[in-house]
């Protein structure tokens, strides 16, 4: 499957997405964040990309980018999807109703890049200690300037 084919199959229902070629994959789709659930459902059921590989987040200072990698066992290909949201109040619908495996990926993006996922079943921090108040993968988090850290011990 090529980027043109993906674009042709999505154009009717999703005139607002941009499909561009991305070497080694079936293409990269840029889409507005509001259409996440609709588009990913179509990509899963209509195009057959039913295996979520990863959800990642990038901090572009003014905005944050969320990218999704899905795999189709029929086409033996990956498909990239990415969307940008403003950094002021970064929140996005959770993908867990479509792909349950997005759960931990989104927990990680929440704690490391500071993006809130609406309607996520469980957004507790996954990797950082309880009470850790930074988002280490933001560009504003400097590696060489140690921060004061107070770690609270969780009651079990």
């Amino acid at each position: 499957m090529e980027a043109e084919e993906v674009g042709a199959r999505l154009r009717e229902r999703f005139p607002d997405v941009v499909v561009e070629p991305f070497p080694g994959t079936a293409g990269r789709i840029r889409f507005p964040a509001a259409r996440l659930i609709e588009l990913l459902t179509e990509v899963r059921d209509g195009l057959g990309f039913d295996h979520l590989g990863q959800v990642g987040a990038i901090d572009w200072v003014e905005e944050r980018e969320l990218f999704y990698t899905v795999w189709s066992d029929r086409a033996k290909q990956y498909l990239f999807l990415s969307t940008r949201i403003p950094a002021g109040e970064p929140h996005l619908e959770s993908l867990t109703p479509v792909f349950p495996s997005a759960n931990w990926h989104e927990r990680e993006a929440c704690e490391l890049v500071g993006i809130t996922f609406d309607h996520h079943p469980d957004l507790r921090p996954l990797l950082t200690p309880t009470g850790y108040q930074f988002h280490p993968l933001l560009r504003s988090f400097r590696l060489h300037e140690p921060e004061e850290l107070e770690v609270k011990v969780r009651d079990v």
């Binding site: 590989g53 990863q54 990642g56 990038i58 901090d59 990218f67 990698t69 795999w71 990926h105 993968l137």
Partner: peptide
């Protein structure tokens, strides 16, 4: 299993972002 890497280079000396799955 399946491991993925995504490397973004913004033109500097270091990668801008490395995402490992």
């Amino acid at each position: 299993g399946e491991a993925l890497a995504y490397v973004v280079n913004e033109g500097g000396e270091h990668p801008y972002r490395v995402k490992l799955k």
